[in-house]
C-alpha cells in the first residue's frame, strides 16, 4: 500500500467517525425516545457522548493508519459509552480493527465486517430475531459480503446494498419480541417497538456510506438489498447450460 493510499484510508475513517458523531448527536432525542419505550432511556445520550469523544480522539491522532484510528475509536467508545453499548459497539471495533492492518480494500472490509458481527454476537450472546443490533448488522454484513465476493459489485454499491439490508433489519425489530438486553424483561410488551441499538447501527452505516461516496466523488448508488433471481436454480427450468433461462429474458 502506498503512503498516499494509507493517508487517504485513515482520513476517510476519521471523516466517517466525525460524520457518525454528528448524526448520532442529531438523533440523540430520537434514540433516547426509542430506548425509553423499552429500556433505560440512556442510548441517545451515551452514544452521543461516546462518539463525540471518539471523534476528538481520532482527530488528535498524528499520522496513524486505518487500523489505529478504528482501534482508538473502539477504545474510546468502550470507556465513554456506558452500559452494554460500550463493549458491543466499542469492544467489537477494537478487535475488528485488526482486520484493517493492511488498509481498506474490499477484502479487508469484508473481513472487518464479519469479525465485528461475530464479536457483537458472542459478547451479547444474541442472534437474529432477539430484537437487538444483531438484527440490523447481520443482513448488512451478509449482503455486503455476498455483493463483494459473489456478485463482484463495486464496493460503494455493496455498501449501499448493505445499508438497505440494515434498514430492513431495523424494521424487522418492530414486530418481534426482545430476548436480549433490558427490553427482554418486558416480555411480550417489547413487541411493537423498534430496537434503539439496531437503529443506531443503521445510522452509523448510513454515515459510512455517505462519507465513502463523498470521498470517491460519486453519488450514493440507488440500489436495494435484493438480487435478481438465479435462473440455474429454478426447479421448473432445469437449464443445464443456463441458455434456456437466459433466452427467456431476451
Amino acid at each position: 500500500m502506498s503512503e498516499e493510499d494509507a493517508e487517504a484510508d485513515w482520513k476517510a475513517v476519521v471523516a466517517a467517525v466525525e460524520a457518525v458523531a454528528e448524526r448520532i448527536e442529531a438523533e440523540r432525542d430520537h434514540l433516547t425516545q426509542l430506548d425509553s419505550a423499552i429500556g433505560d432511556a440512556d442510548h441517545g445520550g451515551n452514544m452521543a457522548r461516546g462518539w463525540a469523544e471518539a471523534a476528538d480522539a481520532a482527530r488528535d491522532l498524528d499520522d496513524p493508519d486505518a487500523e489505529t484510528v478504528a482501534k482508538t475509536v473502539g477504545k474510546t467508545l468502550m470507556a465513554e459509552v456506558g452500559g452494554a453499548s460500550g463493549p458491543l459497539f466499542g469492544g467489537s471495533l477494537v478487535f475488528a480493527a485488526g482486520d484493517l492492518d493492511e488498509g481498506i480494500t474490499p477484502e479487508t472490509a469484508v473481513a472487518f465486517a464479519e469479525t465485528y458481527l461475530e464479536k457483537v454476537e458472542d459478547r451479547g450472546d444474541a442472534r437474529v430475531g432477539d430484537q437487538t443490533m444483531v438484527d440490523a448488522l447481520t443482513p448488512a454484513v451478509h449482503t455486503f459480503k455476498k455483493s463483494i465476493e459473489v456478485d463482484d459489485l463495486p464496493p460503494i454499491e455493496a455498501l449501499a446494498k448493505a445499508v438497505d439490508a440494515a434498514e430492513r433489519g431495523v424494521a424487522f425489530t418492530v414486530p418481534i419480541r426482545a430476548r436480549k438486553g433490558r427490553a427482554s424483561y418486558l416480555g411480550w410488551r417489547s413487541v411493537g417497538h423498534q430496537d434503539p441499538g439496531a437503529t443506531s447501527t443503521l445510522f452509523i452505516l448510513e454515515e459510512v456510506l455517505d462519507v465513502a461516496a463523498e470521498r470517491l466523488g460519486v453519488d450514493v448508488p440507488e440500489t436495494d438489498a435484493s438480487s435478481p433471481t438465479i435462473p440455474d436454480e429454478d426447479p421448473d427450468e432445469p437449464a443445464e447450460d443456463g441458455s434456456a433461462a437466459a433466452s427467456e429474458d431476451d
Binding site: A84, P87, L88, G91, V94, R123
Partner: peptide
C-alpha cells in the same frame, strides 16, 4: 451484572 460481564469479557481478551 449485564454490561459488567461484557466489559470483563473484553478485558480478559485484551
Amino acid at each position: 451484572l449485564g454490561s459488567a460481564v461484557m466489559n470483563a469479557d473484553v478485558a480478559v481478551e485484551l
